[in-house]
Amino acid sequence: MTTDHGLEPLHHQTPLQASEEPYAPDVLDQLTADAALIIARYPQARSALLPLLHLVQSVDGYVTGRGVHFCADQLGLTTAEVSGVATFYTQYKRHPNGDYTVGVCTNTLCAIMGGDQIFDEVSEHLGVGHDETTEDGRITLERVECNAACDFAPVVMVNWEFFDHQTPDSTKVLVDRLRAGEDVTPTRGPSRVCSFKQVSRVLAGFHDGLADEGVGAGEASLRGVRLAKEQGWTAPSSSTASVQHDTEASPEAQAGGMERGGYGSVNAPTNEPDEKPGDGEINDGRPAGAQTEEKDA
């Protein structure tokens, strides 16, 4: 699928671009196999929609029309239902994303600590604004909302990995390195930032084996516990519990994915929204509401 199909988008922000270009059979087979694993994680298939949309982005780089059709087919939904969900969440891209999303936090605290200046200077440096991608397709620049790292402000996220305590200059160096194809290392995260498509696959729930890389905690996260140790402060103790060592994770687990425990998606009937469990005459072990039509059907 390397051809430039040259289809005009229906609208510059609709997700329904490139619908005419079907997935190649091998790509579709892989997507279908992955989708089956995702769906199996949930009691009801529709719960798989968010990870499936991440999966689509891991292949297409954004939510394409064919991706919407794929999700709809997998889950028995209409394309309108899928599009309605895809357009609600900011991580789902409606147009081709760069290899790296560079998100500068410009929520109040980071903005005041320097995030506004970082965004302005990086935006000028790259020649793109919010939600725009550089011509080489490397970087999509975004203003992001609070990313839960305020003690490391100002924060920049690259493909949702933390770059703490940034400055305008450090961020400009960062984006230059990304554009030059160099590996960059987040402050708290794996040894290198993965591409947008790779990270999207992780968000679909497929492990990339990088969990054990990087630090447990950054400097700011440790300030309290370090101070407590210096001062000899501890929590009150109860009866001292003996320390015991247990087994390491098995090699299979080290290598394995998420699919274990044997839970399968069964689309079990549920309660109606206004029904209270136990209202019905249920004594056969079936879920409450088993007699009623499944509401998603």
């Binding site: 991440h54 991580q91 998100g103 992001v144 990313n147 839960a148 996220m157 493909n159 949702w160 990995e161 933390f162 987040p186 708290r188 995260g189 794996p190 990270v199 992780v202 968000l203 729930g205 492990h207 990339d208 990088l210 969990a211 054990d212 990087g214 994770a249 687990a253 080290q254 394995g256 998420m258």
Partner: peptide, 17 residues
Amino acid sequence: RGEIVHVYRRLLRAVEE
């Protein structure tokens, strides 16, 4: 939340372990 991908990795790993 999907915007903290390394946390997600750590959780997946913790569940595996």
